[in-house]
Simulated scan of single mutants.
Amino acid sequence: MNVVFLHPDLGIGGAERLVVDAALALKSKGHLVRFVTNHHDRSHCFPETRDGTVGVTVVGEWFPRSVLGKCQALCAYLRMMLAAFYLVWFSGIKCDVIFVDQISVCIPILRMGTRAKIVFYCHFPDQLLSAGRENLIKSLYRAPLDFLEEVTTGMAHRILVNSQFTAALEALVPGEWDHLKLVIAGGYDSRVEENVSHYKELVELSKKLGIEDKMLFLQSPSELTKIALIRTCTALIYTPENEHFGIVPLEAMYLGAPVVAMDSGGPKETVVDGVTGFLTPPGDAGAVAKAMSGLLTNNDHHRMGAMGREWVKDKFSFKNFSDALNSLVATDE
């Protein structure tokens, strides 16, 4: 079958790793798979999308991501609608199944222009992740977007659901942590103002707390470096709040590292509290420190790491993932 993944920004984040793995899983079952996306930087992407393992077509990159730094969600919706228009009326790409990732507003366009099965991949509803609803202007801005998300999500044939670094820094105070080092590693895109400003903020905070000698910042590490870091770490601290899904905790557990994550979003489904790691209140540096102290004091990181690996192999293996996706694609409505 011809399978197309419609994705807003094919970078190197956790959501992108998950959707690329989904594409590889379907390709391993003999399906023809490609991406249509609003952005794909060959110097800032996963190797499978760069080396031709899966084809990538970029559409609508010229459309702005924001208006004077605002309205990012609205612009993302419009960019995905442009990609959908291109896919069904101008691309000539044959589609039997279309996976729509993250943004559902383009689904009506796909339903009008193609008979393909539409699968919406909802990591976590966007309206549940958007903060600042107490602000009247923000509430008025979000109201039509939330309505569109609710209505268009239900138009898919099938729905798949995966229902701050600052905390980590503040937990690393002098004393019991003297023998440890904190490595902060992740995707870094100089085009994204938030990435640039947050990196500077973290560097300044480490100096303010007097722990710069215990810090190592790695921007966009390679896959080999990332694997080496996780394999040799005591634990992985995963601080994003209300993350859609978060592939990083799964990667860490598979490699034998326990995970300390926020008790919100994706990690609530992937991390078993007290078994494969710990879930802590979002933004609570003290809770993160307590969890890490428990891992070290009781020498639990080896036991939890081993249990985490078995948990991922049992529930999230590539074979199970491939079989489930293939079954979904092959099943007629």
Rank of each mutant, 00 (worst) to 15 (best):
T270W: 03
K313Y: 00
I230F: 03
P249G: 13
F318P: 01
A261E: 01
V275L: 07
T270E: 03
V312P: 08
T270I: 12
L279Y: 02
P281L: 10
G274R: 05
V248W: 03
L296M: 15
G265N: 09
C233G: 08
G286S: 10
T270G: 00
M253Q: 15
T232H: 13
D300N: 14
K313T: 02
E243F: 05
S264C: 11
S264F: 06
M253D: 06
M292A: 08
K315S: 09
V260P: 00
K315T: 05
C233K: 08
A285C: 14
Y238S: 00
K290G: 06
T276M: 06
N298R: 10
L296Q: 08
M292P: 02
L250M: 08
T276V: 08
G277I: 13
A228H: 11
V271W: 04
E269S: 11
V248K: 01
L295N: 11
G294T: 04
A287N: 05
K313E: 07
L229T: 10
N299G: 09
I237N: 01
G294K: 14
D323M: 04
F321R: 12
R309Y: 00
Y254F: 13
V260G: 00
G286R: 10
E241C: 15
P282T: 10
A291P: 03
G294E: 09
V275H: 09
K315W: 03
G308M: 05
Y254Q: 07
Y238T: 01
T239I: 01
D323F: 01
H302W: 06
L295H: 08
T297H: 09
D300K: 15
L255W: 10
I247W: 14
P281N: 09
P282M: 11
A306G: 07
D263L: 08
G246F: 08
G256W: 01
V312T: 04
V288Y: 11
N242V: 03
N320R: 14
L255Q: 14
S264K: 06
T270H: 07
G274P: 01
D284I: 13
N320G: 15
H244G: 15
F318L: 13
A228K: 13
D284K: 14
V275P: 00
L279F: 00
R231A: 12
P249M: 14
F321N: 04
G266H: 04
F316C: 09
M304D: 03
A257N: 06
K319D: 12
D284Q: 14
F316N: 07
P240W: 13
K290V: 03
L255C: 04
T234Q: 06
D263M: 13
F316G: 11
H244V: 05
M307Y: 09
C233A: 15
G305Q: 00
H301M: 00
F318N: 07
A252I: 00
I247Y: 14
P249R: 10
K290C: 02
F316I: 11
V272H: 04
K290Y: 01
P240A: 09
G308S: 03
L236M: 14
V312N: 02
A287W: 03
G266C: 01
F278D: 04
